[in-house]
Design a protein around this nucleic acid. Sequence first.
DNA 1: GTCTATATCATGATAGAC
DNA 2: GTCTATCATGATATAGAC
Lengths: 208, 208
Amino acid sequence: MKEQTSTEEKIITAATGIFLQKGKDGARMQEIADYAGINKALLHYYFRSKDRLYDEVFKRELKKFFTGIFTSVKDTEDAKIFIRSFINLYTDRIAKNQNLVHFIISEIEKGGASISSVIVESMQKNKMQPLIITNKIQDAIAKKQLRNIDPVNLMISLIGLCLYPFLAKPILEKTFLGVNVTSPEFLARRKKEVFDLVWNGIKYENEK
Amino acid sequence: MKEQTSTEEKIITAATGIFLQKGKDGARMQEIADYAGINKALLHYYFRSKDRLYDEVFKRELKKFFTGIFTSVKDTEDAKIFIRSFINLYTDRIAKNQNLVHFIISEIEKGGASISSVIVESMQKNKMQPLIITNKIQDAIAKKQLRNIDPVNLMISLIGLCLYPFLAKPILEKTFLGVNVTSPEFLARRKKEVFDLVWNGIKYENEK
DNA sequence: GTCTATATCATGATAGAC
DNA sequence: GTCTATCATGATATAGAC
């Protein structure tokens, strides 16, 4: 097994860093080449164009991001544990991949519908259909563990509650002075507050 | 009172549309000029550079967005009504200014700390200090209307719950088939679901 | 596979006539 | 104030030597 990092790998690594930081338009092929320690021409030798290089980088990062997000959640039976696991897992996962969040959003801005198909495709390959989760919520409602809520809205709320602080980090930290969104202290507190909010918000009245 | 739209106004209007759609890097001065029905040189005559034009557009849009968001909320005394008003008002306001949401996020991606100061400045001018709201929450906790929650996290959650669907619209609509984030039906349901979630999530146990 | 050098092109910005 | 024509720059992409 080769230990050396291939040129292709070096390019991908460099490109990922630059694209993540500056976006597709802001990134310069020269800068990527410099960062990879190679010549600009080699970028076009390995990847035909900037567009293709970007796509390649984007897909790889998406895969990394989604892999494992839902897998460890989908076998949970108890609704309360499921909610807590989802919040903790999703938050931690995003905390470790903050740049990719910007990446995704930056793509949305471009109006690119391409991203959606990539995500859906990625979810299907990893058997992470949203139906699995909404069905689980329906079951919990039937079992009177949860109020009669709309599963889709709950999912949107869950994701939004976990994701938003990272999306709006600069704004939040300037608006609410003293907050450091990515600090372990804030994240721990955030996970607790979100869980308490959501669980109290959706549990069936008799549920503890 | 002059009815005619001045050249400067035409430029601003055109630039707003293009910048909103393509972002600062993606926008072309030529396209803005075409869209405004004038020559490229005039853009530089009225606004010295692309950067300044962008800043001008950005500030105007921010003002429009924030004006009135908090004003009609800050006089509310009852916590329950306050929460409901905030959710309804914020959601409706965003629904009417969806492009600006992309605008703001697009700026965050650029790492621009500039946006934050603009927002804070804009908030202060409109007397919309976040403290007003967090203090209100503290009062409601003291009056045992609300559980002992963290006011800052509640604010972040409220904004996130309202904002996220618009941010992630393309993804959500591809992931949860049948959802149309900007349809009146979805928005009405969303507002209700979010309020029920939040109010049940934060109300004091004896509170109705 | 990797480099240097260069072609090609698009963009932001300006000069100068009217 | 508004236009045409042009500059200067910097980017992607390629040709061709090694």
